[in-house]
Design a protein around this nucleic acid. Structure first.
Lengths: 177, 177
DNA sequence: CGCGTCATATCAGTACACGAATATAATCTT
DNA sequence: AAGATTATATTCGTGTACTGATATGACGCG
């Protein structure tokens, strides 16, 4: 059934370019920070997609369902702000989820343009099944990080998400006035 | 020219869902780690795209050009491994860059299937102009992180990119045998 | 009232990014 | 030599995710 793996070190009659392995050189901790961030997010997205594929959801779809669950009756624009995505992007996912019958929309009784979004029973059920898998992947993300380290990582992620190079204060939240 | 901004706090005759601001509740450091990671990577991608739009490059295109510059003569498959993307995804970007005349390909003299990729003069020139802008965005990424904190963040990112929950050792690099 | 501004939802087009599948070349095993 | 396996490049279809543009409803001000 399982053959012996090819010895790749001897297959070098072909002139090739030396490529570092995954932990070496620029591919390790010495690499560009943006490069590392990209790969980390990419890997997480991949693992989440794999975990959610069993229930027939992609990870952005799961994200939208989670938002609707947390904020029932929210609008397309609300979700866009919550997820930091454009309204167009959210619209595409909303369309898919509507077609799948996982969410429903009702015109806002007062505002004639807003459509309030709710989970259907099917959506609630599917989201519940996905949550167990997603949380398992999520917990792996913590790795062996100690609590003190986790605080540093979280604070850095928030500052990067916000886009401001400053991250001195604890949850700056500039006052509205 | 500029009107007085609308007072959004008084526009609440419409029944709406209370949505937390960007630093509050689950949208801050208390949020799910995967959620924070996603938003951080998303923001960085956005800023990089904006910075590179001035030279007519997307950030994945810039990434591929950078790889070809670092490893001249590499193949499509090499780039896929370097970027941790699938060969199909890389193929799409390679096609665009070929069409733009920024890279060129030569059949490998020995292996009849491999196509060696090189930067053209135009590609080298454009990449040079993009690098300055990209590095500026990259440097903002560091924020006010101290060196010791940076080590923690980098190590965590590598462990997440690798996918293994363990990050105890310093660059584990599991032995081939 | 009427005009300007803003928010919302949507359409169109472009560019990633994936899984699945195909075709071909090179290599390994028997 | 023949068959199996691997690597490479490619095509196809689906699903994000963006910019740009359009249409409409709600609100503010003169």
């Amino acid at each position: 059934m399982t053959r012996k793996p090819r010895d790749r070190t001897k297959t070098r009659s072909i002139p090739r370019v030396p490529i570092p392995a995954i932990g070496e050189g620029k591919r390790g901790q010495a690499g560009h920070l943006g490069y590392l961030l990209r790969q980390a997010a990419n890997g997480q997205r991949r693992r989440m997609d794999q975990a959610l594929a069993a229930v027939g959801l992609t990870h952005p779809q799961f994200l939208v369902l989670t938002m609707v669950r947390a904020y029932p009756g929210c609008s397309n624009a609300d979700i866009a702000r919550l997820t930091m995505l454009t309204p167009q992007t959210v619209h595409a996912m909303i369309t898919v989820l509507l077609h799948k019958g996982l969410i429903s929309r009702q015109p806002n009784p007062v505002h004639g343009r807003i459509l309030n979004i709710e989970l259907t029973n099917a959506g609630r059920e599917l989201l519940g099944r996905g949550r167990a898998r997603a949380l398992a992947v999520e917990s792996d993300l913590q790795g062996a990080l100690k609590d003190a380290e986790m605080v540093i990582v979280r604070r850095w992620l928030v500052s990067v998400a916000r886009g401001a190079p400053s991250h001195d204060g604890e949850l700056p939240t500039p006052p509205p006035q």
